[in-house]
Design a protein around this nucleic acid. Sequence first.
DNA 1: ATGGCTGGTAGAACCAGA
Length: 264
Amino acid sequence: MSDTLKVVSWNINSVRARIDIVERFLKEEAPDVLCLQETKVRDDQFPEGAFRQLGYNHLVLNGQPMHHGVAMISRVPLHKDERFDWQANGEARHVGARLENGVRIENVYIPAGGEIPNRDENPKFGQKLDFYQRMTDWSAALDTPTILLGDFNIAPLEADVWSHKKLVNVVSHTQIEIDIMAKLQAAHDWVDIGRKFVPDPERLFTWWSYRARDWRESDKGRRLDHVWVSPELADKATSHVVHEDARGWTKPSDHAPLITEFKF
DNA sequence: ATGGCTGGTAGAACCAGA
């Protein structure tokens, strides 16, 4: 492979409903590897043809009916694909693969965690914490240079949300979540590429609710999507942007794509 | 006015997202 790599993470909220803007994005941005979350499609119904037509011939899928689902779509070869069940209930929330240079990409869709930030009252919140714990255990044993990206469903910093005060007890920005996310990060000394390129306390969002009258004008966003890398890869990242414009395209996802470029 | 919307799937007076 060439020594540069352009990787994208995008929670697409149905790859079939969004296929037109996915094609537009691939034509305009031409990433090497596109990592999708919330594809909402079974593998045998995945719209592979649209991707192959644009030269993306390496597809690694982990889908299921209705909900969740992740995929890696690449124009460079992917090897040794894996699907971890960090949710421990069979839901399709992870897919990973190795590039030819030995770097692995792990693509996750971490559960949102429901409404109430208490595992006794809300089992979904417990599942989210347990998912993070399993990722933490995996990270502690990790000895491969890795790009870990996806929808982490936690916005840890005050500058990662439109109002820290209003969201401090809202799932995605609670102290419990911020703490477990910090534990995950420490387990492998993961480097947060988003904040390497847009330092705290600059505003940095990746998701805006569909329910806002005017998402751009109200700008009530959160940084739910992340790109983390192993320490030895931190200096290999040459750029990172949140493609906010795609949030404003026709029939958009509520998440924007994150574009990261590497030079190995 | 943080749910005001959206998608999948069933065929909902639904479920899930976050």
